[in-house]
Nucleic acid binder design. Structure first.
Lengths: 220, 220
DNA sequence: GACACCTGACCGACCGGTCAGTTACGGTCC
DNA sequence: GGACCGTAACTGACCGGTCGGTCAGGTGTC
């Protein structure tokens, strides 16, 4: 009907990546075998290495694909709002979609950071992830500063800190004994603390969030 | 000369843990073999499993030992100062000691978080790590608030965010193409951004740091 | 029948864990 | 002092299992 061969090939590759993602999210890179991935995708083991040069190649592409997806989703969500505060809230919503999706993505992410910290070939992808985040976060911060909603600060550092708050809270969440229960706590905390950090310096009264009842649920 | 046997045993165990730490920092949990650890410690392979029940047992104890060490060092550094700002600076100094030590600890830490996010038996140790941090960070924040140096906020959330900024920046640092070069940038940024987050809300003028030249080195 | 796609048995390497055997050493008895 | 011994510490060959990667051959489609 149309240019079919390379399309079908791409389709197959994508199916394998999706299968690999689910496997990695569950077991971690080190524990996943090529057989697991093939079985999850409903094909035989040989196919995996028919479409990817090696296990490492597959993992690298998997993470590249994840990074592109998440960036696209972030950019889309941000572009749909005009208010910097709303943009940030949209980012929080993207980053904390649901316990299970969160767990899947962030487990994979942490795994990958561990790999990237050691193997040169993987580092490039993590660098690209943070590069994109810096761009997205930085644009929001700058916009908010221009409009006087956020306090003046150096954009690069602020974007870096915003991202650190996202990632750092996520790591704490992953370590929780019962992540499903504490999920809403962390999501709300993320939003509130980002606002706190960015809020204009002339008093908490101008806090764009109605900062009413402090969430005490995480206290010991 | 004295009660010798159990002491010598503990000594051996510690030597193995240290060897394991160096190996893991370099290669990651998944890539380290019992043989690697033994060889690094200058003994034969059999010894490793003579002193530890299994590889998993060894790794769990390794991380427990690391967590205790880092907590002790943090507590000591903090207890030596009285000013909350100085305490926080001391914490930054502990957390960012040098590129190589940083890399070693944080690579291991990230690895371990990946494990803990999946295996029940490991989660308890990460939970303990964050529990201790919450205690240390929380005490500083609370002290600062009482003295009016930091703006009023809910202690648990603030401690959580402080720790998130530490961890999140560290992850970004790990992803840098040339970590050794960007190390001072991240260290300074960590200190400055923590202060920014915690600083009293009545204007940047009261910023406890002399916020002079913005570090632009991380901008694209 | 040619070709792309797919299969799964197979190979070689590796690794956690076991264990039979060796070594080092402190104590004991003559 | 030295012969002897018991045991804790240590060694490394070995085993069973696993996994990444290969490949000879099958299958379906144009």
């Amino acid at each position: 009907m149309n240019g079919k061969v390379p399309e079908r090939e791409e389709q197959r590759r994508l199916a394998l990546l999706k299968a690999a993602f689910r496997e990695v999210a569950e077991k971690g890179f080190a524990e996943v075998t090529l057989d697991d991935i093939a079985r999850r995708a409903g094909v035989s083991k040989g196919v995996t290495l028919y479409y990817f040069a090696s296990k490492e190649d597959l993992f690298r592409r998997l993470f590249g694909w994840l990074v592109d997806s998440i960036h696209a989703r972030m950019r889309e969500a941000v572009s749909e709002r005009s208010d910097p505060v709303a943009k940030l809230q949209a980012l929080v919503a993207i980053t904390f979609p649901s316990p299970s999706k969160n767990r899947a993505f962030f487990r994979t992410f942490v795994d990958f950071c561990g790999l990237a910290a050691r193997r040169e070939g993987f580092r490039e992808v993590t660098a690209r992830f943070y590069e994109g985040c810096r761009e997205i976060d930085g644009a929001i911060v700058e916009d908010g500063m221009r409009r006087g909603v956020f306090a003046t600060r150096e954009t690069a550092s602020a974007a870096s800190t915003v991202r650190a708050i996202f990632d750092g809270l996520m790591m704490q969440w992953l370590a929780e004994a019962d992540p499903d229960v504490s999920f809403p706590t962390y999501r709300e905390r993320c939003e509130r603390e980002l606002m706190r950090y960015l809020a204009a310096a002339d008093g908490e009264g101008s806090d764009p969030l109605r900062g009413s009842d402090p969430v005490k649920s995480a206290a010991s």
